[in-house]
Amino acid sequence: MSAFLESILDPYYIQVLTLLGVYIIAALGLNLITGVTGMFSFGHAAYFAVGAYGAAILTVKYQFPFYGALLAGGIMAALAAVIIGFPALRLTGDYLGIVTLGFGEIIRVVFLNLDITGGALGLAGIAKESSIVLVYTLVLVTIYVMYALQNSRFGRALVAIREDDIAAEAMGINISAYKIKAFAIGCFFAGVAGALYAHLLLFLNPTDFGFAKSFEFLCFVVLGGLGSIPGVILGTSVLTLAPEFLRSLSDYRMLIYGALMVLMMIFRPNGLLGGVDLQRLVFKNKYKSQAGRSTAAGG
């Protein structure tokens, strides 16, 4: 399948599309944390880095099988999230944002100074394992998991925490436990995405995982529509592909990219698909008949 795609598509496009898939997985993870549960995280790139370095070190230095390393990358990122989450998730809102930013920078600086990560020289010699087919298979798995979570007892509890944490707790939800779980699951997907990234770009450098990358992930989610799975996929696609399509404009590329973001926020302040309930659109009749009945009863 990969070979077939490679024969009909330019390798450059394959690379860009594969990278897009990797970002979608990471962005869907962040969406669970920020979009669904309402916890601001400015440090998502750090968990992405934990997965990337973790998996790459395992395959390069310990000859781990790739699939094992992929899973290990996710688990390492989730563990890092749990360790950081315990003190940090007592905070909410802007304060949590600043703390996650701080922890994100700490993780990056640690990678910059460790021997095993190659420090500022970076980590090279990673084998190419992330094919476009594998990445998009995992994108589908991620979409399924996120969809199932959001439509379960677990996901409802997360949305309740976002909407009103005091009421959620008074209704019997252990909010600290749920916040940690959501954070760990979201970071697990960042870790898996990081592991795929490492085995796609074949070279890792700590500067790639700084605040700018975290901010980029947050833009994917916010511009797509917080909490909306299709929205996040669309947001990630637009913001990842736009700079590539705008390459012909060379110097004006980032200028137009910035203007695009401003326009999107002006015309769709809740994100591209924010506040659009696709289920409601598809099953319009079901909701309509209910609404109709209630107006009749109310009148």
Binding site: V145, S152, R156
Partner: peptide
Amino acid sequence: KIGQHCRSSCDFLSAVTGF
């Protein structure tokens, strides 16, 4: 349904297999 939360038990792993 949130009110029913404390009278039910399915967690995130069961959510993934929910269907």
